[in-house]
């Protein structure tokens, strides 16, 4: 066999091997556990790093999840604002409306990653408690804005409210 024929043969073998390897089933990393009541994390509605994440329906700012925190915890060294505004978003996993607290993380430079501005149910700044254009880092030691979280604090319009209701709650 000529040297050319031999080279071609080796080349073909390599290509065949490569294709075979690609077609083999790959052992993937364990998919993240689906938190009860949360949509599939592999979908944008279930991925806290995605703008379409269901809780972010009225968020305005950098996602804490992208800046060293998570969707419920602030990045290291920041201070979570106490005063904030609370909106409502629909969870596609169960169709319920949840009350979301959009606390800001404060006292550090802007996170700069994953800027998301959505305005579902948001209202102008003269309706203070429904506005996300306000820097809500008031009441912390610094108004320097870093990022924003989205914490579920209640279930809206549900027969059985998940929120503890001291007092009779009836009227």
């Amino acid at each position: 066999m000529s040297w050319m024929g031999r080279s071609l043969g080796i080349l073909c073998a390599l290509v065949l091997a490569g294709v075979t390897v690609l077609l083999l089933p790959v052992v993937r990393a364990e998919p993240p556990a689906v938190q009860a009541g949360e949509p599939d994390p592999s979908t944008p509605e279930g991925d806290p790093g995605a703008a379409e994440y269901w809780r972010y329906c009225a968020i305005d700012g950098y996602l804490a999840d992208c800046c060293g925190g998570t969707h419920t915890t602030c990045p290291p060294g920041t201070e979570m604002s106490t005063v904030t505004w609370l909106g409502t978003c629909t969870n596609p996993a169960d169709g319920k409306d949840y009350v979301i607290s959009y606390n800001d993380c404060c006292g550090k430079p802007p996170g700069g990653r994953c800027f998301v501005r959505r305005t579902e149910g948001e209202r102008p700044a003269y309706v203070t408690h429904k506005n996300n254009d306000i820097n809500w880092c008031m009441g912390t030691s610094s108004i320097a804005y870093n990022s924003t979280v989205a914490v579920v604090v209640g279930v809206a319009a549900s027969e059985q409210s998940d929120v503890s209701d001291p007092g009779t709650g009836e009227e």
Binding site: T84, W85, L86, G87, V99, H129, V155, A157, S161, G169
Partner: peptide, 12 residues
């Protein structure tokens, strides 16, 4: 309900 209204209108 009142608890939810408190959240949406006052708690912030």
């Amino acid at each position: 309900t009142p608890p939810i209204n408190y959240m949406l209108q006052c708690q912030g």
